[in-house]
Structures are given as C-alpha cells and as structure tokens.
Amino acid sequence: EPLWIRPDAPSRCTWQLGRPASESPHHHTAPAKSPKILPDILKKIGDTPMVRINKIGKKFGLKCELLAKCEFFNAGGSVKDRISLRMIEDAERDGTLKPGDTIIEPTSGNTGIGLALAAAVRGYRCIIVMPEKMSSEKVDVLRALGAEIVRTPTNARFDSPESHVGVAWRLKNEIPNSHILDQYRNASNPLAHYDTTADEILQQCDGKLDMLVASVGTGGTITGIARKLKEKCPGCRIIGVDPEGSILAEPEELNQTEQTTYEVEGIGYDFIPTVLDRTVVDKWFKSNDEEAFTFARMLIAQEGLLCGGSAGSTVAVAVKAAQELQEGQRCVVILPDSVRNYMTKFLSDRWMLQKGFLKEEDLTEKKPWWWHLRVQELGLSAPLTVLPTITCGHTIEILREKGFDQAPVVDEAGVILGMVTLGNMLSSLLAGKVQPSDQVGKVIYKQFKQIRLTDTLGRLSHILEMDHFALVVHEQIQYHSTGKSSQRQMVFGVVTAIDLLNFVAAQERDQK
C-alpha cells in the first residue's frame, strides 16, 4: 500500500453525458421521505430548503428570480454533511469501515464536522487534520463531537509532509485500522450531490432553472449537481466560483495573481482535486475576500440567511453572472454553511477592521482624538531585521541585547519573508524542534498583521487588541530589464502597544 495517494490523481470516472444510468458502476440512493420521529440526527441530513432572495437581486438590477439552496440546514450545519454520511455509508457497505475503526480526514473543517457527527452516532474514533487558518468555532464544535484535532501550517503546499493532507496520511500509516475516506478522491463525494442535492433542486424548481452558481473546494458539490442538471435540464448554465489565490478556475489566465492566501474558508485549493470535473462548468468567476464577507453580511442583514463567507462569494458572483438572465428565468445559488463557524471572524466588526474589510468610518461609535491620525505620526525608528541564514542562537542574543521581542526576517534585497519572535524561538528550542545552530528560517511564521503608514491609529489599535505587534510595510514598484514591473513589500518598522501608548501619553502631556 502506498504511503500516500495524491489528492489530485487523474480521475478514473467514466461518467458521460447521455450515458444510461443503468451502466453506472456505483451504488445510487434515492431521496427517502422522513418519518415524523427521526431514529437519529443523521436522518436530518439532506432535504434542505430552497429560499427566495428578495432584496439583493433587485438591489443589483437582476431581472431573474434568485433562489438560495440553504445547505446550513443540514444536521452539522453545512453541505459537507451529505458527503460525510455518504462516504461512511459506502465504506461500511463495501466492508472497508468496521466497528471500532478510526476515521482520519484532512479538511478545512466542515467535512470534519460532518464526519465527527456521523462518527459520534456510529461509534468510530475520528481524527481531523486541518490548517491553522480555520476558525476556532470549527475546532470547538469538533472537540465537542469527540474528534481529535491536529493543526497544520496554512501556507504548507498540499504535497508537503507538513500539509493537512501529508499529516493525515502519516497518521494513517501509524494508526492500525485507520482510514482516510479522502473527500478529494472519493466518488461518494460527487455521488452524494448527484443522487440527492441535484434531485432536490430539480424537484423544488419543478425542473425549471436557467443558471446554477456554486463555490468550489473539493469540487464534489458542483460536479455532482452539474452532471445531473446537464442530464435533466441541459439549458442550465453552470457557474463556478473560485477565490483569488486558488488555481481551480479555467482558463488558467484567471488564476494569475501574486496573491497566495485568502481568508474565506472551505473553497479554493492549490491543486485540482480528483473529484472535480471542470468540463461540466460553463464559466468560472474569481471572487475576493472583501466581496465575500460584504455579501455574507448582506445576506444575514437583508435576507435573514445566517450563512458563512463562501455563501457571500457565491452570491457576489451570482449578481454578476445572472445579469444575462431575463424576467421569468431563474438562478439558484448554493449557500454551503452557517455563520456559526465564523462568529469571531467576519461577523465581528473588530475582525473586519483588522483585516481591512471594514473602515473605521463605517462604525458610528465615538472615537478618541488620536483615532484618525496616521501611523506615520508615530515617528517610528528604523527596524531591526535579520536574514533567514542567521542562526536561532545568534538571533536570540541580538533580540535580548537590543531589547526586542520580535524581528522581521528579510532577504538580501529587503523583501519581507516573515517574522521571528523570542517566545516562538525559545519554545521551539525547548520542544526540540530546532537547535541553536539551525537557521532562523526554520522558525519563520507568517501569521502576523501588516499595516501601512497611511493607515489610521484606530486601525492599529484594533490590531493591537488581539496581537502583540504589527509590521509596518510599504510597497515598492521595481522595474526589470524586460520592461515588466513587480510590486514588493518592504519593512518600514515594527509597532507595539507600548509605542502607541507612549505616543498618546506624550501628545497629551505636551497639550497640557
């Protein structure tokens, strides 16, 4: 057995438009009618409502009807409940999964919650491996369901041993009777949507819809739904939504950006999952974080739909894509998950301010006199920076000697690579993860907040409520011999709460 199987392995699926269902090699399930009293909570997966979006479509000038398939009504709160249950049931049916076995899954959280929910009911041990950027709410729900959680670096490539995929496979090879159901490759993922989600949409719309818009992560949702719609409703256009920084969209030119990270969760990847059939997507749109969270908040405030950030991405694209539809036509959007997962993220004004998705003037509360002053007023001194090749031991000596707790790590040209902190280095040394002679590049981390000289002290204040420091950066445009230009970030300084307090105190003292 291989040590790991690539999540982007070539698909062996034989589905073709027009091929009889009787030739399918898979076990198919028909939607079942729910009894009045459910035998367990797993029976509350599927049969989610279709809700008309009344205000947002009109606000953006849509002539067509805009409908939302509300997947956050599933038992675990997301569309991923469907595939989690289906993968477990299919693994039980073919004898792969037996009582007492362990389920391991690399996930952005929602599939993990679905699997942990099913594992709690069915009696399996469950280990979820997820990147650090995923919300604390997801972690809390997983723990409450009895799952064990392993976190991995957000910026690790999918084929790196440190990625959530790599760590999951390492655990599988170490733990007896453990299984990775593997949402990236498992046919049960798109089949769950082909058999149930798509049929529900067709039934709820009486077979009449002209466009379907869905955000894409593993691709199982859009693949399964689109294949069924292509068979039953061939005139329906399928629109895929991919965040900026991901590479799922086609044509490839759409993916060209210097951005590699994004805040919206559960969609987009740096590889093409095996289950994603991009041939059934008629057109791709890219979405960005700001519009995703703005539209998610709009869905909550104006439509009462308590959905997550990827739902915002989907609707932001839908109001663009559906401009081509006329009166009497219908566009369906998939709202994948609930706001429950993001209470401390985009639902929080403070978080939105820190990330730059909300401006101070958007909030009406009274601010102190210094709130709208610029960061450049602080008069920061030149920063202490270190090269990635310097040793951890030497870096600790320098920081202690100069009285700093942290320093930016830059390359020879001064471009920011990340940050090192005294606390992080000492804990890594004590844990045996690094040696004093190791290069400081081994303990770089990139989960820090950046701020510009033109940003306000109010925004800085919000950042420092949650973080010990902020890195002050400025952009530099560099022209190359080819005539092309590129933008790079340079370090201007490091600012802490002490710097802000000293500035405010000094100004008030001078005024007296």
Results as ranks from 00 to 15, higher is better:
Val339Ser: 05
Gly403Asp: 14
Gly268Asn: 03
Ala301Asn: 11
Phe492Glu: 10
Leu501Asn: 07
Tyr262Gln: 15
Val491Asn: 15
Gly493Tyr: 13
Glu324Trp: 06
Tyr269Glu: 06
Gly393His: 15
Val420Asn: 01
Ser348Val: 12
Ser461Ala: 01
Gln354Pro: 05
Thr279Leu: 11
Val434Tyr: 15
Leu417Tyr: 09
Thr421Lys: 09
Val386Met: 09
Val440Asn: 14
Phe404Trp: 10
Ile416His: 09
Ala296Arg: 01
Val319Ile: 10
Gln302Lys: 04
Met298Leu: 12
Leu399Asn: 05
Ala407Trp: 01
Gly240Cys: 15
Ala301Leu: 11
Val280Arg: 13
Asp270Trp: 01
His480Ser: 09
Ala311Tyr: 10
Lys484Thr: 01
Met298Trp: 10
Leu501Ile: 09
Thr344Cys: 07
Glu263Ser: 06
Ile444Ser: 13
Leu387Asn: 08
Glu361Gly: 10
Lys345Val: 05
Ser481Val: 14
Gln439Val: 10
Thr456Gly: 11
Ile444Thr: 08
Asp455Val: 10
Gln439Ser: 07
Ser427Cys: 09
Leu430Gln: 05
Thr261Met: 06
Thr454Val: 14
Phe492Leu: 11
Gly308His: 04
Gln256Arg: 13
Glu244Trp: 01
Leu353Cys: 12
Leu464Gly: 07
Arg459Thr: 13
Ser313Thr: 14
Phe469Ser: 10
Val410Ser: 08
Leu384Ile: 04
Asn255Tyr: 08
Ile444Ala: 11
Leu384Asp: 15
Asn341Arg: 04
Thr395Phe: 05
Leu305Asp: 03
Leu373Ser: 09
Val386Asn: 05
Asp438Leu: 11
Thr344Asp: 06
Val332Pro: 05
Gln507Arg: 12
Gln435Phe: 12
Glu377Tyr: 01
Ile239Asp: 04
Cys307Glu: 01
Thr454Phe: 09
Glu360Val: 10
Tyr269Lys: 01
Gly308Trp: 03
Gly328Ser: 11
Gly414Leu: 08
Gly483Val: 11
Gly245Gln: 01
Val375Thr: 03
Lys442Ser: 07
Ile247Leu: 12
Gln406Arg: 05
Glu361Leu: 09
Asp242Phe: 01
Glu360Trp: 12
Arg452Gln: 01
Glu258Gly: 12
Glu401Asn: 14
Thr274Trp: 01
Gln326Trp: 08
Asp467Tyr: 01
Leu373Gln: 01
Pro436Leu: 11
Glu397Cys: 07
Ile267Phe: 01
Tyr479Gly: 15
Gln435Ala: 14
Ser437Asp: 01
Lys283Leu: 09
Ala407Thr: 14
Asp282Met: 06
Ser381Asn: 08
Val420Ile: 12
Glu412Thr: 12
Phe357Leu: 10
Ile477Ala: 13
Ile451Ala: 01
Lys359Ile: 13
Thr454Cys: 11
Ala316Gly: 13
Lys402Arg: 13
Gln487Asp: 14
Leu422Pro: 04
Phe469Gln: 12
Thr421Cys: 05
Gly441Tyr: 14
Ala318Glu: 04
Leu417Ile: 14
Thr261Ser: 15
Gly432Asn: 13
Arg297Asn: 01
Tyr445Glu: 01
Gln439Pro: 08
Asp270Phe: 04
Tyr479Leu: 13
Gln487Ile: 11
Lys449Ser: 08
Gly414His: 05
Ile477His: 13
His474Pro: 05
Gly441Asn: 13
Asn288Ala: 12
Lys286Asp: 01
Val332Gly: 05
Val315Asp: 01
Thr421Pro: 13
Leu430Met: 08
Gly309Leu: 01
Val241Thr: 12
Phe404Thr: 07
Val375Ile: 10
Thr260Pro: 03
Tyr479Arg: 15
Thr391Gly: 01
Gln302Ser: 12
Thr294Ala: 15
Thr257Tyr: 08
Leu430Asp: 08
Ala321Phe: 07
Leu471Asp: 01
Ala316Tyr: 14
Pro436Glu: 11
Gln259Asn: 07
Phe285Arg: 03
Thr257Asn: 14
Asp362Gly: 10
Cys307Ser: 13
Glu291His: 01
Gln435Cys: 14
Val491Asp: 01
Phe448Gln: 15
Lys402Trp: 01
Glu475Leu: 11
Lys345Thr: 06
Ser486Ala: 06
Lys442Pro: 12
Met352Tyr: 05
Asp270Ile: 01
Ile390Arg: 04
Asp277Gly: 09
Arg452Tyr: 13
Ala321Ser: 05
Gly403Arg: 12
Gln478Ile: 09
Leu363His: 15
Ala413His: 03
Tyr445Trp: 05
Leu501Phe: 08
Glu290Phe: 06
Arg509Val: 15
Ile451Phe: 12
Gln476Ser: 07
Ala505Gly: 12
Met343Gly: 04
Phe448Cys: 13
Glu401His: 12
Leu457Thr: 01
Gly240Leu: 01
Glu377Leu: 10
Phe357Asn: 04
Ile239Trp: 04
Ser437Pro: 05
Leu426Asn: 09
Ile390Pro: 01
Asp242Arg: 06
Asp270Thr: 09
Thr385Asn: 15
Glu265Ser: 06
Gln511Cys: 09
Leu429Asn: 13
Phe285Gly: 08
Ala322Pro: 01
Val495Ser: 12
Gly245Cys: 12
Asp411Pro: 13
Ala316Thr: 05
Gln354Val: 05
Leu417Gly: 12
Ile334Leu: 07
Lys402Pro: 14
Phe448Asn: 15
Val241Cys: 12
Ala322Met: 01
His480Cys: 10
Val420Tyr: 12
Phe271Val: 04
Ala407Ser: 14
Val375Ser: 08
Gln259Met: 14
Val491Phe: 13
Phe285Asn: 07
Lys484Cys: 14
Gln478Lys: 13
Leu500His: 15
Val315Arg: 05
Val275Ala: 10
Met419His: 04
Asp411Glu: 07
Trp369Val: 07
Asn255Phe: 07
Lys286Phe: 01
Asp242Cys: 01
Glu291Ile: 08
Gln354Trp: 14
Asp362Thr: 15
Pro388Val: 10
Lys366Cys: 13
Tyr269Ser: 01
Phe448Asp: 03
Lys355Leu: 12
Gly418Phe: 07
Thr496Gln: 11
Gly312His: 05
Leu453Glu: 15
Gln406Asn: 06
Thr257Asp: 10
Arg459Ser: 06
Ile272His: 11
Thr274Glu: 01
Thr389Asp: 14
Gln450Arg: 01
Gly245Asp: 05
Ala249Asn: 04
Asp349Met: 01
Ile498Leu: 10
Val241Ser: 12
Glu397Pro: 01
Leu426Gln: 07
Thr257Leu: 11
Thr395Leu: 09
Ser246Ile: 01
Arg488Ser: 15
Ala301Ser: 04
Tyr269Asn: 01
Cys331Val: 03
Tyr445Gly: 01
Gly414Ala: 01
Leu464Phe: 07
Lys283Trp: 10
Ile267Thr: 08
Phe346His: 01
Leu325Tyr: 01
Val494Thr: 07
Asp270Ala: 01
His474Phe: 09
Glu253Phe: 08
Gly308Asn: 04
Asp510Gln: 01
Glu263Met: 09
Val410Trp: 07
Ala321Lys: 01
Leu305Trp: 01
Pro368Phe: 08
Glu252Val: 10
Asp282Leu: 07
Glu258Leu: 09
Ile463Val: 12
Gly240Arg: 05
Lys366Arg: 01
Gln354Asn: 15
Ala249Thr: 01
Thr421Met: 13
Pro408Tyr: 01
Lys446Tyr: 14
Thr482Phe: 12
Gly418Ile: 01
His462Arg: 08
Phe503Asp: 04
Phe469Glu: 13
Gln259Ser: 04
Gln447Arg: 11
Thr391Leu: 08
Leu387Ala: 08
Met466Asn: 01
Gly266Ser: 01
Leu399Met: 15
Asp411Arg: 11
Gln487Asn: 12
Val410Ile: 14
Lys446Thr: 15
Ala318Thr: 11
Leu363Ala: 01
Ile477Pro: 01
Gly308Ile: 03
Gly493Thr: 14
Lys512Val: 13
Phe448Val: 12
Gln406Leu: 05
Asn288Ser: 09
Ile300Cys: 07
Leu306Met: 10
Thr364Phe: 09
Ala322Asp: 06
Asp337Ser: 06
Ala505Leu: 01
Glu377Cys: 06
Asp282His: 01
Asp455Lys: 05
Ser381Gln: 07
Ser481Trp: 06
Val420Arg: 01
Arg400Leu: 10
Ile463Met: 13
Gly393Pro: 08
Ser313Ile: 08
Ile398Val: 08
Val332His: 01
Asp362Arg: 15
Ser287Asp: 01
Arg297Phe: 01
Thr344Gly: 14
Asn424Asp: 13
Ser481Met: 14
Leu363Ile: 08
Thr391Met: 13
Gln329Ile: 03
Arg340His: 05
Lys366Gly: 09
His468Ala: 05
Thr294His: 15
Lys286Ile: 01
Pro388Tyr: 08
Gly356Asp: 01
Val415Met: 06
Val315Cys: 09
Lys484Leu: 13
Ser287Arg: 01
Ile238Ala: 01
Gln450Gly: 06
Thr364Cys: 09
Arg350Leu: 12
Val440Thr: 01
Ala413Lys: 15
